[in-house]
Amino acid sequence: MSNKKLILAIDSSLACPAFAVCEVNLITKNIKVIEVSHVKTNSKKSTGFRLFQIWNHANDILDRYTFDAVVFEKGFNKFAVATQQIQRTVGLLLFTLYCKEVENIDEIAPTSVKKAVTGNGKATKEQLAEALESYVGVVKYKTNDESDAVGVAIALALQKGWI
């Protein structure tokens, strides 16, 4: 049994999905960010084209790593169109993961991520990003979505008792 676990955490959206690859050391109970990235899609392009961009990015990550755990931030929005877009992206990513023989996938609600990482389920994105430093140190996030993805990875590691 390995002393390390590799997590892929995804903050999915059609506009700017983010991906965090994090490694947990089960002996030291530490977590570190290996890679964090996002795909900024162009809203003027077709949904099919935007999903293709996301698929390419996800495939690249899945070709380079073998994950012990994959976790999504549970997507929701009070607006029907945004919720549909999130669900299209989630569907695409679930299919992509399945094609790579990844079937065991967790989901964590945004409030659960915030509660686990900051102690406050209603924390702002900025408060979440700040709290991440106590787990992974200073990371240069290009978007709030990237820091959200790292938060999802940390929440899963905490849930599983890995850290």
Score class of each variant (00 low, 15 high):
Gly48Tyr: 14
Gln85Lys: 09
Gly119Ser: 08
Glu23Leu: 15
Ile105Leu: 00
Val117Ile: 06
Pro17His: 08
Ala153Asn: 04
Val36Trp: 13
Ile154Ser: 10
Val139Leu: 09
Tyr141Thr: 04
Thr124Ala: 08
Thr111Cys: 08
Val152Arg: 03
Tyr65Gln: 06
Val81Cys: 04
Trp55Pro: 01
Leu94Glu: 01
Ala20Met: 07
Lys142Asp: 15
Ala155Arg: 09
Phe79Cys: 09
Asn77Leu: 09
Tyr135Arg: 05
Leu62Lys: 02
Lys44Asn: 07
Leu94Val: 00
Gln127Val: 14
Ser134Asp: 13
Glu101Lys: 14
Arg88Thr: 03
Lys125Pro: 15
Asn59Phe: 00
Val117Phe: 08
Glu126Lys: 15
Phe79Asp: 14
Pro110Val: 01
Glu126Gln: 15
Glu103Cys: 02
Leu26His: 09
Asn59Ser: 07
Gln84Glu: 12
Asn104Lys: 11
Ala116Met: 15
Asn42Leu: 08
Glu107Pro: 01
Phe72Ser: 00
Ile86Met: 08
Leu156Lys: 06
Lys32Thr: 12
Thr143Ser: 08
Val70Arg: 03
Pro110Gly: 13
Arg50Phe: 08
Asn104Gln: 07
Gln159Tyr: 12
Ala82His: 12
Thr47Gln: 06
Val21Glu: 08
Ile34Asn: 04
Lys29Leu: 15
Ile27Lys: 15
Gln84Phe: 12
Phe95Lys: 04
Leu92Ala: 00
Ile31Val: 08
Ile61Arg: 12
Val138Pro: 02
Ala157Arg: 10
Glu133Asn: 10
